[in-house]
Design a protein around this nucleic acid. Structure first.
Lengths: 117, 117
DNA sequence: TTCTTGACCTAGAGTTACTCAAGGCCGGTA
DNA sequence: TACCGGCCTTGAGTAACTCTAGGTCAAGAA
């Protein structure tokens, strides 16, 4: 499929996809005879994964490493697993941050209510 | 107190605090006779709020607006309340995102386990 | 067949939100 | 008096996009 559809399906925008590809984050993107990118379903799954990793705060350098490992084949699966497990721990930390922020907002809003009376 | 202590207490680093002040995000920062910044406990509370708002993804423009409203006095409390309530909704969305990402990671890790056997 | 439209392409500039570095001042201690 | 740490400003550097300009190409309308 074309880049616009890949964008719509993955959540990334077309510029970001091109940028990610240029930075080596997206392996195996083919080109049609017209020179335009063609994305396989596997490409789109990959982009979707990148979208969610980005959305939850993974730095590009880590994604870059993840993509490089992927390109090296199945023997890098343990390393890739480590990266995802690390990220999973980051998610837990972010959940705590959200709770912490919620508390602070609640306190602040309470004070505002007092002022409004 | 001095900037380094304000940084330690709020979570922001000193450069960020100076930057935020220059961008109008931190009202009422005094200077000592030596020309250095002096932060009151209220300043630090404010910085701590900014820290958590940033940590949970509030764009600077919104913080800027929030600070400007604050500087205009108590009659802007309803507007400030709206900003915080909006942000609160964003937190809920982010929590959903984390859940979504967790699922995707779990599925991916499962596939890796299969490969490792 | 020519014209137009729309999706795509690349290269490079612009933006956001920091973060770091250079060079200078100032108050306190050895 | 010489040094030191912490502060100051200004300006450059960085990350991760995001947008713009200028160009190609295929398909449908006139």
């Amino acid at each position: 499929m074309r880049i616009s559809e890949a964008a719509a399906r993955s959540g990334l925008n077309v510029d970001t996809i091109r940028y990610y590809e240029a930075e080596g984050l997206v392996p195996n993107v083919m080109r049609g005879s017209d020179g335009q990118r063609r994305f396989s379903p596997e490409n789109v799954d990959w982009l979707t994964l990148l979208f969610w990793l980005r959305e939850t705060g993974m730095p590009m350098k880590v994604m870059q490493r993840f993509a490089a490992l992927y390109a090296q084949g199945d023997e890098t699966i343990p390393d890739r697993k480590d990266i995802l497990l690390d990220h999973s721990r980051l998610l837990a930390k972010r959940r705590d941050d959200l709770d912490r922020c919620d508390e602070i907002l609640a306190r602040k809003l309470e004070i505002y209510e007092e002022y409004l009376w």
